[in-house]
């Protein structure tokens, strides 16, 4: 659970990650929805988190903060002006913020907020980036982005996202099946076991 990749096309954001990871050298596979790196919200927002497990649990268990703006949309203005202060307060109050060597505070992870055809990446220092087409976050984003660049939007995107991870497996043992995909249109999880 260390990398999230995504692709925006045909009015939706498709996301993929792995449900397998190594914790203290032991391979662990997440089999329950509560432990997945994504959460589907009733209002159509999909949130994703990679990084510190406690921070993810805090965020996912308070996912009611992820509301849409008054126009039933998500904009950069709303994410930076409303959601970021909420997320900051949440992590601060839950004491899951971390400090770097020079004293800068943040959280240990990356968040993705996807709604319809928009995807916002939020980094550990609360910096927000709006994605244009393809994106990757996390430890192995470099490997994954090479393959994301080659995606053919006429083929099944989620299959291709999983293929990106399969290709990235050649570069690291830390990306492993089962893979998980979700998109902002169908709003359900798909697990690919091999």
């Amino acid at each position: 659970m260390n990398t999230i990749i995504g692709y925006i096309s045909d009015g939706k954001v498709s996301l993929a990650s792995s449900t397998a990871s190594y914790v203290n050298g032991i391979r662990r596979v997440e089999r329950t929805v509560e432990n997945y790196p994504f959460k589907i919200l009733k209002n159509g927002i999909v949130i994703g988190f990679i990084g510190d497990r406690t921070a993810r649990q805090v965020l996912f268990s308070h996912s009611r903060i992820f509301k849409l703006d008054r126009n039933k949309d998500l904009t950069m203005s709303y994410v930076t002006g409303v959601l970021i202060p909420e997320i900051h307060d949440l992590f601060h109050d839950a004491d899951v913020e971390t400090s770097s060597d020079d004293g800068l505070m943040g959280f240990a992870g990356n968040i993705i907020i996807a709604y319809k055809d928009k995807a916002f990446k939020i980094y550990g220092d609360y910096e927000v980036e709006l994605s244009l087409q393809y994106f990757a976050m996390g430890k192995f984003k470099v490997f994954s982005r090479v393959y994301l660049h080659e995606i053919d939007r006429h083929k099944d995107i989620e299959e291709q996202l999983v293929d990106c991870f399969r290709n990235a497996c050649g570069n690291t043992d830390d990306i492993q099946a089962p893979f998980i995909t979700v998109n902002t249109k169908d709003l359900h999880f798909n697990i690919v076991e091999d």
């Binding site: 900051h88 400090s99 004293g103 505070m105 609360y126």
Partner: peptide
């Protein structure tokens, strides 16, 4: 407010 002062002193 966001803990972004370097060494709790200077803005980054």
């Amino acid at each position: 407010e966001y803990g972004q002062l370097v060494n709790n002193q200077e803005a980054n």
